[in-house]
Design a protein around this nucleic acid. Structure first.
Length: 950
RNA sequence: GCGGGAGUGGUGUAACGGCAGCCACGCCAGACUUAGGAUCUGGUGCCUUCGGGCGUGCGGGUUCGAAUCCCGCCUCCCGCACCA
């Protein structure tokens, strides 16, 4: 074998050497325009900035498999390309390190979570370094660093010290400091939000404590008692986003129960409209935007009040047009008016289906409420959609028909959505139809179904029928017209109003776990919360003897949360001087959810060591600020998994908008462009007993698969230990080198696309790098085999076409295209400049530059051997010369009736007439045209000629 | 059920409405070799009577021309799911 062949061993020694040099020289240090990291900024001052980021990893301890680096490599290639193409590029990395998995792993191993977490971080950092990524490691931090979570706590205090003014910013709504609310309440220029004042009281006459309670109820971070998701198996409560559709925890898959508890909430619902409408301004995939839209769940309709005796029940409906068809009302079992509305006795002759077998309405209600509260979401699912409920013994009145409407409670109406009460229209709603069938309730159709329709509820469109009284007629109108007409009537007569509701709920923010940010909150002698002042931050997580949370049997729904910090009694009770002398306070013992740390980490990369503020505003403007009027600003490219569609990405957008409203950031959105990288899966194999066998040991013969000579069955799935198809980057780097691994991962498809892993195909990428190496370096001497000769025209064309296509592939994250064009160029050079023929330097150098973002180590080595002392990372990326992108002559297809029958070679600038003449001159074409009538000739210069025969 | 996305060789994929399958894996053949899981060269959609014919999930449509645009199906993937 030649002594200087690009073998895995040579690749590895090149890679390790360059990784050391990059670190030693600070090659990837990104200068800030100002402040501590501004050294060297003058070098890049005239460059446009580019902020490229990955969703930072959670250091789990399970180790990386070959799927994990895909996104990291995608941003790395992009970042390196942009740097070479003249940008000041910021490509940082950090670690999301608080949270349940680290804590649970620590519980298993008996180690403090910090110890295991830091070991895991170190392992991932080493793997990332070995991949050759160009992170500016001076900016790396973990969310568990006190210097970081100090500012997470500080941002929490900003949310605590703010309220949402729905009238601000021209009715769009905006966060404002809470002190301004107090001032307006004191001045009498503002009424407190509905439901926040004690019944029948006014602000001016409240006691100091009562006033504080009213103010607390307005805060963006507030305490609230409500049914929450209690997960005994984890010993903590969870947010809606952390509970799966079948009522289990996303982490750990434990059952979740609804229990009323007092918890910290974040008023994300105040931002529902802005979170929804600003999606239109973001460069995100349609599917991701749609997921957020669905989660926010905006629907427009009307609130309608139905009198029930002395009370009034308000319902929300998106179909006020069907009001003439409303034949009963249903309240959620937990609706606050249920007890007040329940009648004392059943009337004579009550339908037995309506009573639940109880002697009185009150008993029926109590029994049904108990049953509903005990049922977990999972049980409801398991029972299917059979409708249950009981009658309250009360009736409402339909404001349009005057008809009596029996009022039921049923668990198919949810407390949390709309008003927790509905008007039931069995003619046009499937759920109401099912309930009406089960309870023998009348059906009135108000939308004319098609003649052939013979189903139950008709949910399609059609003209209104049966919808008139002496004041109003909707008959014959379409849906939109009927909604407008009836809403106008309801408003005019005081029965209701047009309104919008959202599925989005406020974000449950407290967790009863140890391994999270402590709340920067203390309680005074009135048991009311006070924010810890900035000067006393961070509130450090105390050392405790037992950091594991108290967990319970998975299904123990009677258990109550018990935060581990509550057992740190010396920490909980604290004496502080908050401005009125030293007093004793009690610390909040909940911790924040692990989403808190990832809500703002992108900002901290900009100014990682700042102890005076969470980020220097000048740095935020430089890296994140809007570029033009109407631009949201934000990170220029954010790459990560789609699993964060409604968790991290919604929470981070919410915090960012609050920071924007309060004037701390200039950008309106955190992530201007977002791409979800695909997943890498792999084949797995099962033997006759259906057990998985190690995939690496399976051989293929004639389309069949064998393990130890026995036939096995091929499956496809997630890479991991359980399917015995684990492949790690370390193995691949060991066998091929990091550059080959990088090129292979990038060559298998566009970044967004999921793809299978195929180890045997990696050799193709290795061959490519070997061919490039052989084009540039003499395998016998190790010297460059270039000369200052002029390339021929064909080579120049091949080079410039490759440059053009590689640039396009880099910009659109289709690195597979870039690699295919580099391969073509390399193959051309291999053929054109065989052994003994020097390669023109003006071609070899651009080839190395094109390859540099994808295979940076071998590119550095070749660049160096081509006598360039400086890193290729800062070399100028090639720009195509236009004159080589157009051919002198082109091959044009000649079609007859749309079928290609010949090729003719013509000058590239031949006009339509010349092209047609050339086509007619081809003897195969004359054969077709002889004796036929040419009805039409379509000529597209440079592309084709099509003769349409009659 | 609702919403979103995708269906192209044995495989991963590529094609401004204009020559379908670039590039790679695999496979076949050859060269160089003591040897090859190295390297290089050539071939490789299917059928074929060697003229050609057929081919982008299925069926229609628009167009001189459709993988691409439109309509209706089918299949797969993802998200949501008693949200009024």
């Amino acid at each position: 074998m030649p002594p200087h062949r690009y073998t895995p061993a040579l690749a590895q020694s090149i890679e390790l050497a360059w990784q050391d040099r990059w670190e030693g020289e600070g090659t990837f240090h990104t200068p800030n325009p100002t402040g501590a990291l501004s050294e060297g900024f003058e070098r890049v001052a005239d460059r446009p900035k580019a902020f490229v980021m990955d969703m930072f990893p959670y250091p789990s301890g399970a180790g990386l498999h070959v799927g994990h680096p895909l996104g990291y490599l995608g941003t790395d290639v992009t970042s390196r390309f942009l740097r070479m193409d003249g940008h000041n590029v910021l490509h940082p990395m950090g670690y999301d390190a608080f949270g349940l998995p680290a804590e649970q792993y620590a519980v298993q191993t008996g180690q403090h979570p910090r110890v295991t977490t830091e070991a895991n971080i170190e392992a991932i950092a080493a793997q990332l370094r070995r991949l050759g990524v160009d992170h500016d490691i001076r900016r790396t931090f973990a969310t568990i660093d006190p210097g970081y979570y100090k500012w997470t706590q500080w941002i929490f205090t900003r949310l605590f010290e703010a309220w949402f003014d729905p009238d601000a910013d021209g009715g769009r709504g905006q966060a404002r400091p809470i002190t301004e609310l107090v001032a307006e309440l004191d001045a009498g220029t503002r009424q407190s939000a509905p439901g926040t004042l004690p019944e029948g009281r006014v602000w001016a006459e409240l006691s100091e404590v009562e006033r504080r309670q009213v103010v607390d109820a307005h805060r963006l971070a507030y305490r609230h008692e409500a049914p929450v998701n209690w997960c005994p198996g984890l010993g903590t409560v969870l947010s809606n986003e952390e509970v799966t559709a079948d009522g289990r925890s996303e982490r750990g898959n434990f059952p979740v129960f609804r229990r009323p508890l007092t918890q910290w909430m974040m008023r994300i619902t105040a931002y529902a409209e802005r979170l929804l409408s600003d999606l239109d301004r973001l460069d995100w995939s349609d599917s991701l935007k749609q997921m957020q839209r669905n989660w926010i769940g905006r629907s427009t309709g009307a609130r309608i009040a139905f009198p029930v005796g002395p009370e009034s029940v308000e319902v929300f409906t998106t179909r006020p047009d069907t009001l003439f068809g409303a034949t009963y009302l249903v309240l959620a079992p937990e609706h606050p008016l249920v007890e007040a509305l329940a009648a004392a006795d059943w009337p004579d002759g009550v339908d037995p289906r309506w009573t639940g077998g109880a002697a009185t309405p009150a008993e029926a209600v109590a029994a049904y409420q108990r049953q509903a509260s005990r049922r977990s979401e999972l049980d409801r699912q398991a029972e299917g959609r059979e409708k249950t409920g009981v009658w309250l013994g009360a009736t409402a009145v339909n404001p349009l028909t005057g008809r009596d409407l029996p009022v039921f409670i049923a668990d198919y109406v949810l407390t949390g959505y709309g008003t927790g009460a509905i008007m039931a229209v069995p003619g046009e709603d499937t759920r109401d139809w099912e309930f009406a069938q089960a309870f023998g309730l009348p059906v009135v159709r108000t939308v004319q179904p098609p003649a052939a329709f013979d189903g139950g509820a008709y949910t399609g469109s059609g003209p209104m029928i049966n919808s008139s009284n002496d004041q109003l007629s909707l008959d014959g109108l379409d849906k939109a017209g009927a909604i407008a007409t009836v809403t106008e009537w309801l408003v005019a007569h005081g029965h209701g109003e047009a309104t919008t509701t959202y599925k989005l709920r406020d974000w449950l923010f407290s967790r009863q776990r140890y391994w999270g940010e402590p709340f920067p909150i203390v309680y005074d002698s009135d048991d009311l919360p006070i924010a810890v002042p900035e000067s006393m931050l961070p509130v450090l997580l105390p050392e405790v003897d037992d950091y594991s949370p108290k967990t319970f049997a998975d299904d123990d729904d009677t258990s109550l949360p018990e935060p581990p910090l509550s057992r740190a009694t010396e920490w909980v009770t604290v004496t502080l001087d908050l401005g009125d002398g030293p007093k004793t306070y009690r610390r909040e013992t909940n911790t924040m959810p692990n989403w808190a740390g990832s809500c703002w980490y992108y900002l901290r990369y900009l100014d990682p060591a700042d102890d005076e503020r969470f980020v220097d505003p000048a740095l935020e403007r430089y890296w994140m600020g809007p570029r033009s009027a109407g631009d949201t600003g934000g990170v220029d490219l954010y790459v990560g998994g789609v699993e964060h569609a409604v968790l991290h990405l919604l929470y981070a957008r919410f915090w960012h908008k609050v920071l924007f409203d309060l004037g701390y950031v200039s950008s309106e959105e955190p992530f201007r462009r977002l791409v979800n990288q695909g997943y890498i899966s792999a084949f797995a194999y099962t033997d006759a007993r259906r057990f998985y066998v190690p995939a690496a040991e399976v051989v293929e013969r004639d389309g069949q698969f064998f393990h130890d000579g026995e036939p096995v069955n091929r499956e496809y799935g997630k890479i991991g230990k359980s399917l015995k198809n684990m492949v790690t980057p370390d193995e691949m780097i060991e066998a091929f080198g990091a550059d080959t691994f990088r090129v292979y991962e990038m060559s298998t498809g566009p970044l967004e696309q999921s793809r299978p892993w195929e180890t045997k195909a990696v050799v193709g990428s290795q061959r490519l790098l070997q061919r490039v190496w052989r084009v540039v370096v003499d395998e016998e001497t190790g010297q460059p085999r270039v000369a200052d000769t002029e390339p021929d025209a064909g080579t120049s064309r091949a080079l410039n076409r490759a440059i053009e296509a590689v640039r396009d592939g880099m910009g659109t994250l289709r690195f597979n295209i870039a690699i295919a064009r580099i391969t073509e160029l390399t193959n051309h050079l291999t053929q054109a400049f065989g052994p003994g023929t020097a390669v023109p330097r003006s071609v070899a150098e651009p080839l190395v530059l094109l390859l540099a973002p994808l295979a940076p180590h071998v590119a550095e080595e070749m660049w160096s051997r081509l006598d360039h002392p400086d890193s290729v990372a800062w070399a100028q990326f090639p720009v195509a010369e236009q004159r080589w992108l157009v051919d002198d002559t082109v091959e044009v297809a000649v079609q007859v009736n749309g079928k290609v029958r010949a090729q003719v070679s013509v000058p590239a600038d031949a006009d339509a007439a010349a092209l047609e003449a050339a086509a007619r001159a081809d003897e195969r074409i004359t054969g077709y045209l002889d004796g036929a009538t040419v009805r039409r000739v379509v000529v597209v210069p440079g592309r084709l000629v099509n003769f349409v025969l009659g």
